[in-house]
């Protein structure tokens, strides 16, 4: 028996051993996360099934609620805006519904990613798989739910006599932009939320307030009409990364192309990519280090 560990201490690493925490360079962090998700695809699928199961399994109508909830919401909008308020634009309830679905996707992914480490603290301390899996599973779950919810607009399209057009391509692209922006921003601050729980509270407030400053209950065209196309207020409003994706979703159902300024389009296209790149860099560098604080 020895009073110290055996064999004698050595800081030299054996070449046959794989370092459990290899250094990931800043530039390879986005790829590192993609590789991890690809490697753990089976786990990711199981976690998504679990999430969906948890949400609907005990309900009598089960998964039907993913469709029923927005359908009931749409009925309320129809009664409110078309029957009671007598709006001329019969498509308005559908536009609001699309805004609600798109915004819901963005807000849920953002909030769940911000708190992904804290929410899963128990499991994180017992399992060693990559930490980004937790938020990725939430993202995928919400993408599934939002995609099913989109089926609610089909009755509206029949009612409004809107035939599906090639412009429907904007729908998945817009949803991808919302998902990538929300996930990227969430990844940036998820580790900080472990140290400062106020972060999650702040983001919950931001997503509540964001509902009103995003084109959910209003449209991009209303904004242009009120402020004027050349107004500097438009540039400020367009800093909100969800304005263009939400507008794309609405136009894709209507079968029209929105009229955006080029610099706004470039900003909207680059924002999700940069959010993901910076989010993955920050998350890869910080997340494992904060596990001991959970």
């Amino acid at each position: 028996m020895s009073d110290t560990a055996q064999p004698p201490r050595s800081d030299e690493r054996s070449p046959s051993l794989e370092n459990l925490h290899p250094k990931v360079s800043v530039f390879s962090a986005p790829l590192h996360i993609r590789k991890n998700l690809s490697k753990h695809r089976y786990l990711l699928d199981n976690m998504v099934s679990r999430n969906l199961n948890q949400r609907y399994d005990k309900a009598l109508l089960g998964y039907l609620w993913t469709f029923l909830e927005p359908a009931l919401l749409a009925s309320v909008y129809y009664i409110l805006f078309i029957i009671i308020a007598n709006y001329d634009d019969k498509s308005y309830p559908m536009l609001i519904l699309l805004g609600v679905i798109g915004w819901g996707l963005f807000a849920r992914i953002l909030n769940s990613t911000v708190s992904s480490l804290v929410t899963n603290a128990g499991m994180i301390k017992q399992t060693g798989f990559p930490l980004e899996i937790y938020s990725a599973a939430e993202c995928k779950t919400n993408l599934v739910i939002s995609s099913i919810s989109l089926l609610t607009i089909i009755p509206f399209m029949f009612y409004l006599d809107l035939a599906p057009t090639v412009h429907l391509w904007m729908m998945p692209v817009a949803m991808f932009m919302l998902y990538l922006s929300a996930w990227g921003i969430g990844l940036m601050v998820a580790s900080a939320n472990v140290v400062f729980p106020d972060v999650a509270h702040a983001f919950r407030f931001i997503t509540r307030a964001g509902f009103f400053v995003s084109p959910v209950m209003w449209t991009y065209e209303m904004l242009i009409e009120r402020a004027g196309a050349d107004s500097s207020y438009i540039d400020i409003a367009m800093l909100n990364p969800v304005v263009i994706p939400l507008t794309m979703m609405k136009h894709s159902a209507q079968g029209t192309i929105p009229d955006f300024a080029y610099h706004h389009i470039i900003y909207a296209a680059v924002f999700p990519i940069l959010a993901y790149i910076f989010g993955s860099i920050i998350f890869t560098a910080t997340s494992r280090g904060v596990v001991k604080r959970l």
Partner: peptide, 24 residues
Amino acid sequence: GIYKPDNGWVGINGQISLLAGVGV
């Protein structure tokens, strides 16, 4: 690999599984 050492390193050779808690 759950906790990352502040200093030093952990090296493995092969697949590792942790069985901790009941039904974790």
